[in-house]
Structures are given as C-alpha cells and as structure tokens.
Design a protein around this nucleic acid. Sequence first.
DNA 1: GCGGAATATTCGGATAAACGCATATAAGGA
DNA 2: TCCTTATATGCGTTTATCCGAATATTCCGC
Lengths: 118, 118
Amino acid sequence: MDRENLDQELKLLHERICPALNHPLRMKILYLLNEKSLNVGELTAEMGVPQSSVSRHLRVLRERGLVRAERQGTTIWYVLVEPELTTAIEILRRILSRQLGNHLYQAQTILGILPEEA
Amino acid sequence: MDRENLDQELKLLHERICPALNHPLRMKILYLLNEKSLNVGELTAEMGVPQSSVSRHLRVLRERGLVRAERQGTTIWYVLVEPELTTAIEILRRILSRQLGNHLYQAQTILGILPEEA
DNA sequence: GCGGAATATTCGGATAAACGCATATAAGGA
DNA sequence: TCCTTATATGCGTTTATCCGAATATTCCGC
C-alpha cells in the first residue's frame, strides 16, 4: 500500500470508526449493547444523562453502521452490529490498566494527571 | 464494577488512551513506530506535513506514555511503548474493511500490500 | 383524528482540537 | 562563543464537538 492509499484509509478510519471510541458515553453504549440489545429508554436509564444526549450519541454510531435501530411500535431497539468494537476497547483498557499499575501514585492521588515523561 | 467505577474508567480511557487513535496522523505515527523506532526528521519525511505538526502529535502520545523519546545528541528517537495500540487499530481496520464490502481482507500490517479500493 | 409515550432533531452557546507560521530551546562542533 | 542542525513551543485563528433545553416526529390505542 503506497502512501496515498494509507493516508486515505486512515482518513476513513478517523471519520467512520474512531468517533465510536472517542467519547465515554459512546463507549458505555457499546459496552451495554454488547451485553444485550436495549431500547433508548433503557439506555437512558443506565447512563444517567438526558435522553437527547443518548439519542445524539446513538446517531453517531448508527450513521456509521456500528449499531442498528430496530423499530417495534414506538420503541426502538438498538443492536450492536460490530461487537469487535468492544474487543478494541478491551485492548485500550488493558493499556490503561498497565499504566495505572506503573503509575500507581498518580492513579490513586490525582486521577487527572498524566504519566511523567521519560 | 459498579456504575461509578465504570464511568470513571471510561473517562480515563477517553482522556489518556483514546486521543492516540483519534487522529489520522497519530495513527500513522503509531504504525510507523510499530515497524521500527524513528527520529522526528524521519517521521516528518514519511508524513508529508510540517515538522511542527509531527512534533505536536508526538507530544500527545508522549504525554500519555504511549511512546517514549530517547535523546541521542541532537536527535530524538521515538519508541512505541504500547504496540497493542496497533492491534486495536487493526481491529478498527477490519471493521472498516467489512463496511466497505471488502471481503478480501487479510490481517496484515497496514504498510503491507492490501486490496485496492481502500 | 386525538392524546400520550418514545425517540429524534434543532438551536445557540460553550469548549476543545488542530493548524500554519514564526520563534524558542538544546546539543554539537568549529 | 558562534553557527548549524534537530526538535519543541507560543500565538492567533479556524474548525469540530458537545451540551441542555425546547421542540418536532413517529407510532399506537382509543
């Protein structure tokens, strides 16, 4: 793959896949849907944020084909189309876990801080 | 894990790990460094963007402990600390490939030869 | 058709991210 | 010390993302 195609694919990844992982609420949605399909009301109850917020995050995922909406009367059930997304999140969690192990003081005392530079 | 802890961990993931994957140039850097360690000049040559841009993206990765900077004279070599990041990107690429209807996908480094139309 | 429940969207404003350019810092050698 | 090369940062601007509140849409039962 030459540089043109590589850049093109990375741009597509950035536009169409990465946004799924780039917000705590969206990652949470993915996790919840990985357990079982839920409707918007159930998701809203789990997430503790306004319904409009859940709905907008669902749209980000839906527009990218990562979740699917199935209407059943007035209720809309959301289904995880790409369970591999949770696999990717698991990898990121493993990295974070390693970091917190390596920087236990920072993790326990000041959660906001970043690891020190080498 | 209760809701509080889950939300807390997702917030940390969002702040400290996810930014690595949320920019085409940073993903490219991760891929390049996964092949071998490079200095800033080499990276800049590969990426075709201003050096200041490369440097700032490197800082995002460095501040999060995902790459490491090793000075050698005036040159600074960057080393990938978390190769699992490229595993995560591979997963995202597989999802994208599925979306594009490309069933010829084979797990391979992004720098290798891959099907057209990406 | 009407009312209510479930979900989606619009609006305006706030926050954060990224950029190019110019300049600053740091190290090595004459 | 001064010059050069390598890398990092400050500045001002543009662009993207997110939010809550309010409103709109869709569907069902009556």
